[in-house]
Amino acid sequence: MKGKVVSYLAAKKYGFIQGDDGESYFLHFSELLDKKDEGKLVKGSMVHFDPTPTPKGLAAKAISLPLE
């Protein structure tokens, strides 16, 4: 699924993505496929991810940034 980063707290390594389906997904650095892309996780960045339901809500897994 595609989505847009709505927040990312680099110090805490987490944030949120708004998916194309309108839902909010929890984003964690550990799910970023290329850790070098962390600096690109800023508000408004477009990402691809696997939407995954968890006991705490919806989460983004296997997060990647589109090729530039």
Results as ranks from 00 to 15, higher is better:
Phe49Lys: 01
Lys56Leu: 10
Lys36Met: 11
Ala10Cys: 10
Tyr8Gly: 01
Phe29Thr: 06
Ile63Thr: 03
Gly3Thr: 00
Phe26Ala: 03
Ile17Trp: 01
Val6Ala: 09
Lys61Leu: 10
Ser30Gln: 08
Pro66Cys: 14
Asp20Leu: 09
Ala11Gly: 11
Leu9Val: 15
Pro53Met: 14
Gly3Ile: 02
Ala11His: 13
Glu31Val: 04
Glu31Asp: 10
Lys40Ala: 07
Ser24Glu: 09
Lys2Cys: 12
Ser45Leu: 14
Glu68Gln: 14
Pro55Asp: 10
Asp37Cys: 10
Lys40Tyr: 09
Lys12Gly: 05
Gly57Arg: 03
Asp21Phe: 03
Pro51Ile: 09
Glu23His: 14
Tyr8His: 01
Leu58Cys: 08
Ala60Ile: 01
Ala10Tyr: 11
Pro55Ala: 11
Ser45Arg: 15
Lys40Phe: 09
Lys13Phe: 05
Gly15Arg: 00
Lys40Gly: 06
Asp34Gln: 08
Gly39Tyr: 14
Asp50Arg: 15
Lys12Pro: 03
Asp34Cys: 10
Asp20Met: 11
Leu32Phe: 04
Leu33Lys: 12
Met46Cys: 11
Met46Leu: 14
Ser64Ile: 12
Leu65Val: 15
Lys56Glu: 08
Leu27Glu: 00
Pro51Arg: 07
Glu38Asp: 04
Val5Gln: 01
Ile63Asp: 01
Thr54Leu: 06
Leu32Thr: 02
Lys4Gly: 04
Leu33His: 05
Ala60Thr: 00
Ser30Tyr: 09
Tyr14Cys: 07
Tyr14Val: 05
Gly39Ala: 14
His28Tyr: 06
Ala59Leu: 13
Glu23Thr: 07
Ala11Asn: 12
Leu9Met: 13
Leu27Arg: 00
His28Ala: 12
Lys2Val: 11
Gly3Trp: 01
Lys43Met: 09
Gln18Ser: 08
Ala59Pro: 02
Gly39Ser: 14
Leu41Gly: 01
Thr54Ala: 07
Gly19Lys: 00
Lys13Gly: 10
Lys12Ser: 08
His28Val: 06
Gln18Pro: 01
Gly15Val: 02
Ala60Asn: 03
Ser45Lys: 13
Ala10Met: 11
Lys4His: 13
Val47His: 00
Gly3Met: 00
Pro51His: 04
Ala11Tyr: 11
Met46Pro: 11
Ile17Asp: 00
Phe26Thr: 04
Leu9Asn: 15
Asp37Leu: 09
Pro66Arg: 13
Pro55Val: 10
Met46Asn: 10
Glu31Ile: 02
Lys43Asp: 05
Ser7Gln: 11
Lys36Trp: 08
Thr54Ile: 04
Ser7Asn: 12
Ile63Leu: 05
Phe29Met: 06
Ser7Val: 15
Lys61Thr: 12
Lys2Phe: 13
His48Ala: 12
Val6Gln: 09
Ala11Arg: 12
Asp50Leu: 15
Leu9Trp: 15
Ala10Asn: 08
Lys56Ser: 09
Val5Arg: 01
Gly19Ser: 04
Ala59Glu: 08
His48Ile: 14
Phe49Met: 01
Lys43His: 10
Ser64Arg: 14
Lys43Glu: 09
Glu31Pro: 01
Met46Asp: 08
Asp50Ala: 14
Glu38Asn: 04
Phe49Pro: 00
Pro53Gln: 15
Val47Trp: 04
Pro66Ala: 15
Lys12Arg: 12
Phe16Ala: 04
Tyr8Ala: 03
Gly3Arg: 01
Gln18Lys: 13
Pro53Ala: 13
Leu27Ala: 05
Met46Lys: 11
Gln18His: 10
Ile63Arg: 00
Asp37Ser: 09
Ala62Arg: 15
Leu65Glu: 03
Asp50Ile: 15
Phe26Lys: 03
Lys56Ile: 08
Val6Glu: 07
Met46Ser: 11
Val47Met: 03
Asp50Gln: 15
His28Gln: 07
Leu27Ser: 02
Lys4Tyr: 15
Gly22Arg: 05
Phe16Pro: 00
Lys35Trp: 08
Leu58Pro: 09
Tyr14Glu: 05
Gly22Val: 02
Lys4Trp: 15
Ile17Met: 03
Ala62Ser: 13
Val5Cys: 03
Leu65Asn: 03
Lys12Trp: 09
Leu9Gln: 12
Pro53His: 12
His48Asn: 11
Met1Leu: 08
Asp34Tyr: 08
Met46Gly: 06
